[in-house]
Simulated assay, not measured.
Amino acid sequence: MNEESAKITGRIIAKAWADEGFKARLLADPTAVLKAEGLAIPAGIVVSVVEDTSSLRTLVLPARPTDLSDDDLDTAAGGITAICNLCNCF
């Protein structure tokens, strides 16, 4: 994600926290809302939005990179530390 997309995503999250109607639209039709907020969603890409709650945490399993060998994957950092430091959920 580039810097501009990260800024837009942060603004969308803040707006969803502050505006229940916006959050409902985001959950119901994320592609339309994200496009309306300025994010480029390529044709053929399906976007889903889920809301974490006090009893539900979502772990996103990214697609396996096609340009890395099994040995490369074994030594990759994976990013879970950054996620856990961000939300303290795991």
Rank of each mutant, 00 (worst) to 15 (best):
V60D: 04
I12H: 01
V60M: 05
D70P: 02
R25T: 07
V47C: 05
P42E: 07
A18K: 12
S48F: 05
D29F: 08
S48K: 14
S5M: 08
S69Q: 06
D71L: 04
K7I: 02
T31W: 00
I83P: 00
R11P: 00
I80K: 08
A14H: 04
A24N: 14
T53P: 03
A77T: 10
I8F: 05
D19P: 01
D29T: 13
R64F: 04
I45Y: 07
K35N: 01
K23I: 07
L86R: 09
R57C: 06
L34G: 02
T66A: 14
G79S: 04
N88W: 02
T53H: 03
P30L: 04
S48N: 11
A36K: 15
A77M: 08
L34D: 01
T66E: 15
K35Y: 00
A28R: 08
D71W: 00
C87M: 11
A18F: 03
E4G: 02
I80P: 00
G79N: 08
L86N: 09
A14T: 11
A77P: 05
L73K: 12
I80A: 15
G10F: 01
V60W: 01
A76E: 14
I80S: 13
V50F: 13
A18D: 13
E4D: 11
T66N: 10
R57M: 05
L27T: 01
A6E: 11
I8L: 11
L27C: 02
G21S: 06
A82N: 12
T81M: 11
V46L: 12
G44V: 06
C89N: 12
A28I: 02
G38K: 09
G44F: 03
F90G: 15
R57V: 13
A16F: 09
E20F: 05
A28Q: 09
N88P: 02
V33I: 14
S5W: 03
P30T: 06
G78S: 08
T75S: 11
A76P: 04
A63H: 06
G79D: 06
L34C: 08
L27Q: 02
N85S: 09
M1F: 11
L86V: 03
R57I: 08
P30Y: 01
E3R: 09
A24E: 15
L26H: 00
S48L: 09
L56I: 15
L39Y: 02
A77K: 10
K15N: 05
G44Y: 02
V46G: 10
A43T: 10
T58W: 02
V50H: 13
F22T: 10
G38R: 11
S54R: 13
L27P: 00
E20Y: 02
L39D: 03
T81H: 10
A63I: 07
E3V: 08
R57Y: 09
R64Q: 13
V33N: 02
G10P: 03
T58P: 04
A43L: 08
A14S: 14
F90K: 12
L26Y: 00
A40C: 03
D52T: 09
D52R: 09
I13G: 11
A28W: 00
N2T: 06
E51S: 06
V49Y: 06
P30S: 07
A76M: 13
I13Y: 08
